[in-house]
């Protein structure tokens, strides 16, 4: 509608031109053409930029994927076989760290969002919301600095305790054999700099994103659904389970996916906390941690050259594809649920 109104408007002005040309200045049309040209050009610029991102990354990545196995200029991977043998453990580390972070972040974020939308007193809920948003404002490098100098050492005793008492749980087992007698020694990460700490900091960075989105969805729960539930005698928690959570399910899923996309691409916090290696391991407390793609790039790019650069750029391309898939799924969920949401 709005798109057609101005065009019919324009026709009218042009048709009135022969009647009284003094009413219509010619420059108008030039201005319009120029302005719409600039706007359309900018919009197409988005397309150009993305195409450039894809093209440049691909051209720089191809030499790494097709090259013969051998020394690369990256100290850590000189003995590695082909490209995929090297990048798959990193991709595993990326996904593993993000999944761990999401396991912590999603329940917490839902709880916080519920607190802000349905539990906190109305007057302070907004201020509390701003405080949670503050978490999102902290740059990732500061999170990394805090994580490696404050959080990791603080958690170190706890990790020791976990390893001593709960090592029958596979994830907390950091004992490795040494010597011939079958003795075991703890192979704990130095100063608590392990996968669990990295995942915790990642979770912290993702929580405000998920919280902000789910809170909005929870606040949109139809008032009548809530009141109907309460009128039938439900407690507040039962009302939330009957009215708020079912309404917000798709919102929770899609915001979690967006948070996951963010966690996958997060670089600095992991790069500073985790002295990772190129390996696959599910253990959380050991010295031998898998690294993430983004952190690996950040740690090695400044010193890399030649083939090493190509290799890292190719890894970045893999990361791009992973995050792209996750984000697409999130958008698809948001889009498919939009028609069903009963918010009317």
């Amino acid at each position: 509608m709005s798109a057609q109104a101005p065009s019919s408007d324009k026709e009218r002005t042009t048709s009135s031109e022969p009647l009284d040309s003094s009413l219509v200045r010619d420059s108008k049309r030039y201005g319009d053409t120029l302005f719409s040209g600039i706007s359309t050009g900018s919009a197409l610029m988005i397309f150009v930029i993305l195409a450039a991102v894809a093209t440049f990354l691909t051209t720089q990545a191809i030499p790494a994927v097709t090259r013969e196995p051998g020394p690369t200029g990256l100290t850590a991977v000189e003995t590695a076989g082909g490209f995929w043998q090297w990048v798959l453990p990193l991709a595993f580390g990326t996904v593993w760290a993000s999944v761990l972070a999401m396991l912590m972040a999603v329940p917490l974020a839902i709880g916080i969002a519920l607190f802000l939308s349905h539990y906190a007193p109305k007057r302070v809920a907004k201020t509390f919301g701003y405080i949670v948003d503050l978490l999102a404002a902290v740059p990732s490098v500061v999170f990394g600095l805090w994580g490696v100098t404050v959080l990791a050492p603080a958690l170190d005793p706890f990790y020791r305790w976990l390893n001593d008492n709960l090592s029958w749980i596979y994830f907390f087992n950091a004992w490795v054999p040494y010597g011939d007698g079958g003795d075991l020694r703890p192979n704990l990460a130095a100063g608590g700099q392990n996968m669990l700490t990295a995942a915790m900091v990642l979770a912290l960075m993702v929580i405000p994103i998920i919280t902000a989105l789910t809170r909005e969805v929870f606040l949109q729960t139809p008032r009548l659904h809530e009141e109907a539930s309460l009128a039938l005698g439900a407690t507040r928690w039962e009302m939330i389970r009957q009215a708020v959570l079912p309404f917000g399910t798709s919102g929770i899923i899609s915001s979690s996916m967006l948070g996951l996309g963010r966690a996958l691409g997060e670089t600095m916090a992991v790069a500073m906390i985790l002295p990772g290696k190129v390996l696959i391991s599910f253990k959380l407390l050991t010295f031998d941690n898998p690294n993430t793609i983004a952190a690996y790039i950040a740690q090695n790019f400044p010193e890399a050259e030649g083939d090493g650069n190509h290799q890292l750029i190719a890894a970045g391309l893999v990361l791009f594809v992973i995050t792209l898939v996750v984000n697409m799924v999130a958008r698809a969920i948001i889009h498919s649920r939009r028609e069903f949401s009963g918010a009317n």
Binding site: I46, Q60, I313, G316, F320
Partner: peptide
């Protein structure tokens, strides 16, 4: 374009850096 803007929002920051690096090194 809206779709592409969505895609762009999801670009990990380090990938954006790699893009600029590739561009300038070419």
């Amino acid at each position: 374009i809206r779709f592409l803007v969505d895609v762009m929002t999801g670009i990990p920051s380090i990938v954006a850096g790699l893009f600029a690096y590739s561009l300038f090194s070419l």
